[in-house]
Design a protein around this nucleic acid. Structure first.
Lengths: 210, 210
DNA sequence: TCCTGATTAGACCGACCGGTCTATATAGTG
DNA sequence: CACTATATAGACCGGTCGGTCTAATCAGGA
């Protein structure tokens, strides 16, 4: 049994499975699930079709699930990192949005939210992708909520603000892509951050200067 | 030359062109541009392929443009109506979002924003649909901005709040579809409305009780 | 070394895609 | 009525879709 393959590949190139997931994630992020064919994914990943169906017997949907989960983890990590770097939830929102806006601009407005496009394409349909998408959104929102709670904001308010912040960022990413203007994301996030800063709070949860 | 065809059809069924646009708008709204085939549109509209390419010589993209424009006009009218019914911008945002949330729930979460899905699918690509989508978003935001200005809110603030409100609604519609929960839209809009109400303003522009 | 399962490789499949084309029906006008 | 532009009707096209299948290759243990 020699199929662990996670600890660094012989050369430096990631394993086939990893390459497939990365290629799929990037292409789905750019043009959505239905807008990308297997042939395109395979050529970007430089892998034959046999490998795809070896690693993902359920085919395209299973690959998409893996890609969504990878993207979900990546962004959640960025969110946590933005919280650490910023110190509080307001700065986290601004920092995270700035990061996304930068990625958007760097990719010439092709790479928006890796989840939103698939979310809209698949919403309402019975496919398994819907559940994956919903779970990712919930996790992101929960991360935001916990951060707000950590700043001493009341439960109900943290809930509402987390929902608002995630909605605003997701929506702004759509507008920003359509109008090719990353500042729309930064400005929306700036408003949310300002709103968070005016929110009454019980006590600050982090140590350091008050 | 007898091709005016706008004033009511002989029976009660709308003309072929109209049926095509409506069918396309609905299906694109549900599953996006790439996710819907011509055959499906034709069968829903009960029209043959010849009619499609008679009325829309440029094919699917031209049909999509027409569908987007129809949807854009429809929602802009709803926005204006929500403003009239609510009296001010804050109530407009809440009323409009409530309308969208209701539609979303009534359609079992299949019918979200008719523009967002196509916006994400096509963003960054050179296609002509991108421009149409951007123009619609700009118009919606401008309607919001003017309403805020009419309430006596300063230029810069009206700009920022219009962007935030549209972003929040669009984003909340994504989350709401994914999680099958229309209240996410109402709650996000409620927060935006509350924010608008706290905004300092020069004078109220509408008559009636102060 | 040989053997065995994991993996790669890509030919191949039926279905469906958007689009073109010819033929027919329909309605308005002289 | 005949004539003509409009509109309907759908067969047909090459290409691509996601998915299946068999064969070749590869790596590692006995």
């Amino acid at each position: 049994m020699a199929h662990i393959e996670s600890p660094m590949r012989e050369r430096d190139r990631p394993g086939t499975r990893e390459r497939l997931v990365r290629a799929a994630a990037r292409l789905f992020q750019e043009r959505g699930y239905g807008g990308v064919g297997l042939s395109e994914i395979l050529s970007l990943a430089d892998a034959p079709k046999g490998s795809l169906y070896h690693h993902f017997p359920e085919g395209k949907t299973q690959l998409a699930r893996a890609a969504l989960e990878m993207a979900g983890d990546r962004l959640e990590a960025s969110l946590a990192q933005a919280r650490e770097a910023g110190g509080d939830a307001a700065n986290m929102v601004e920092g995270f949005a700035g990061l996304l806006a930068g990625w958007l601009e760097a990719s010439n407005f092709t790479q928006g939210c890796p989840v939103a496009t698939i979310a809209l394409e698949q919403a309402g349909q019975p496919g398994e992708l819907t559940d994956t998408v919903a779970a990712i959104f919930r996790r992101w929102r929960e991360t935001l909520r916990l951060s707000l709670l950590g700043d001493g904001i009341a439960q109900e308010r943290a809930d509402a603000l987390a929902n608002l912040a995630l909605s605003a960022i997701e929506g702004a990413l759509i507008l920003a892509r359509a109008e090719r203007n990353g500042d729309l994301v930064r400005r929306a996030a700036g408003e949310i951050a300002a709103l968070i800063r005016t929110e009454p709070r019980a006590q600050a949860a982090q140590p350091g200067l008050s």
